Every structure is written in C-alpha cells, then in structure tokens.
Simulated assay, not measured.
Amino acid sequence: MFERTSIIAEAGVNHNGSLELAKRLIDVAAEAGADFVKFQTFKSSDVLTSRAQKADYQKARTDAHQNQLDMVRKLELSPDDHFELVEHCKSRSIALVSTPFDIVSANFLVDDLKVDFVKVSSGDLTNAPFLLHLAGLGAPILLSTGMGLLGEIEDALGVLAFGYLKPAGVRPERSAFCAAYRSAQGQFVLAEKVSLLHCTTEYPAPIDCTNLRAMDTLKQAFGLRTGFSDHTPGIHVPIAAVARGASIIEKHLTLDREMSGPDHRASLEPAQFADMVSSIRDVEQALGSGRKMPTRAEISNMTVARRSIVAARKIEPGEVFSADMLTTKRPGDGLAPMELFALIGRPARRAYAADEAIDGVERG
C-alpha cells in the first residue's frame, strides 16, 4: 500500500461544508506535495444521537450550545460532492481517500469511489461490527490507534483478520477473532492489508502526550507498517516521527487556522504544510541505507582530509626505517598510515627527502 513515507493531507471537515473550499484544500495539498488528501464521509444521523455532546476542543471553536449532531450535519459532503472532488483530485494528480463513519459511507467509498484505502478513526478502534464490515469489503485499511491499549489494538486486528478471511461456517465472536489473528493466513492478510497509525486523540495534542516511542512498540508488537497521525502544533513532531521510522504521516490541513470549525486550530496552513512535506523528504534522504561507507559527497574529500606516510627527515637508500624516521601528513594520496608499522625494521630501497611520501612497503 505504501513505499516511501506517504503523506496524507487531512482535509477532514475543514471545508466547513463548502465544495469550493474542499477543492481549494485539494489544490494546496497537491501543491505542497502530499500523496493523498483525505476527507470524512458520513451520514450524521447514522453516527450520532441528539444526546452526543461536543468535545471541549470542538466547543472552543464552534457554538458551545450546539450539540455534536447539529454541528456535524453542516459538514456532510454528498455523494455527488465526492464524485466531483475525485475528478478534481485527478486533475491535480493527487489521490482522494476518506474516513467512513458508517456502513453506507464505507460501501460508497469502496464500491463506488474505489478509494486506495479507507482510514478508520481512533474512535472506531473498538467498534467491532464496523471493523468486521470494513474488512469484509476487502479494501486496505489504515487503522488509527488513538486512546487505544495494546490489547484493544490486537482485538481490532483479530476482527479485521476474520473479516478479510471470511472463514466459512464460523460465527463471528471473540474466540474466532483470536483464532483468525493467530493463524498464518491471518498474519499474512494483516501484513498485506493493514497499516497502523499511532495517534494522540486531542486537538491540538500536547507535546508531552505525543509518545512517539509508542510507534516502536506498535511495530514490535504487531509487525505491521506503522505511521503517525499528528495533532500537535507545528511541523517538528511529524518530522521527528519520520526520523524514528514512521512510514505514513497524516496531518490536518486548513486554509486558515482562525476559521470557525472544530479542527482548524489543530491544522497547518498551506505554507507550513508545504514546509513539513519538504522537510520530511529531506529526512528520508538523510536516513540513507544504513550501510557505513564513504558517501558520494565524501569521496572527493578523502585525499584532502586523510594522511599518508611521509619521511620525517632525509632518508638514505638502505637505511632501516625506525619510528622517528616516519610520520603521517596530508594529503592522503600515498601509503595509508595503517601501513606504518609494517615499514619499521625494513630498509629503504631509495632515497627520500623530508616530507616525501613513502611509496610502498619496502621488502628487504
């Protein structure tokens, strides 16, 4: 599903319900060099009851007296909107993906839009029926793990493994999920289809709650491709995540952080998002292969910086080399200093002036 670090511009609901604003978010994501632009696909009444209250961060940026259902209704994109956005993405050479929040939306994304993968929000990590349905659709899944314990993540992966494998005649229940997860086929399909995102579910997320080392834990525990969904201010934490091995970075994108809406304050504006992408690409190059050897940029400096064995004084032919007759000086275009010890006790086959390079291990 992913090769180099994949960068997902999380447009989310930062379009504020405006199709034109959504298109502009696609434009800036493409201009910044993101690989994907991600929206959220939902039918509000299938996701929320009227009793659902807004999170504190949502209250801070929207009408505090409005419930979550009323807020979210204004942020829905219709199926026609999605098709139009897909066409706009094609014109900008960027792929559209989305997070579904209900079964109808999931079916629409996979069957009609044919997205490359679906993102599962952290809030649905424990939503076993929804996970089972998603895996049954067969599409690759990017699973966000905010608020999750390792056991909960393993449970979710068991549901996904079962959903992908669809074992005939086996009832979906916890024991069957565990068996699917532990099976060789289950591990294979998870490695092929599922990637994990470490995440801190707060907007914006405090730096001291980021815990980037949890990415290492996820990799070690599950052996899956792992990335980071970032809600911290600025760009330094996702860049650090790439240096720690994140293969996927998701970051919210907005046109203006001061706009009214639940996620704008936890988002990057276009210029800053572009800086993040550029910095991540630099980090990827800087990480290199891991092999310790002279790099292309160093080779021309080796002669300049290293030393050769030279005569410390005038040496006559036949004189036996001693330590005080030899020294090492730049440039490094002669016999390497590592050979100095092999010269000691051997006769000089010719005369050398002071500072003249010794031209080989002399044989007596």
Rank of each mutant, 00 (worst) to 15 (best):
62 T>P: 09
4 R>E: 14
312 A>I: 06
206 P>N: 13
285 Q>C: 15
7 I>H: 14
267 S>W: 07
293 M>Q: 03
147 M>W: 00
243 A>T: 12
255 L>G: 06
179 A>T: 11
2 F>E: 06
205 A>S: 00
232 T>I: 13
187 Q>A: 13
15 H>Q: 03
23 K>Y: 04
222 F>A: 02
313 R>G: 02
326 L>V: 00
330 R>D: 12
291 R>C: 00
178 C>L: 12
135 A>F: 01
305 A>D: 11
85 L>F: 02
355 D>I: 12
198 H>Y: 06
91 S>R: 11
216 D>L: 13
123 G>L: 07
267 S>T: 15
274 A>K: 10
112 D>C: 11
137 L>R: 03
73 R>E: 15
354 A>F: 08
242 V>I: 01
12 G>R: 15
52 A>P: 01
183 S>L: 08
195 S>E: 06
133 H>I: 10
289 S>G: 01
159 V>F: 06
168 A>G: 07
61 R>D: 06
27 D>G: 14
346 R>D: 07
128 A>G: 05
54 K>M: 14
43 K>N: 15
318 G>Q: 10
131 L>W: 10
54 K>W: 12
252 H>Y: 06
311 A>K: 03
230 D>Q: 03
105 S>G: 00
277 V>K: 14
75 L>I: 13
65 H>S: 13
14 N>P: 11
129 P>Q: 15
354 A>Q: 12
238 P>K: 03
235 I>N: 05
247 S>P: 02
231 H>C: 08
251 K>W: 00
277 V>G: 07
361 V>A: 14
99 T>A: 08
83 F>W: 14
200 T>Q: 05
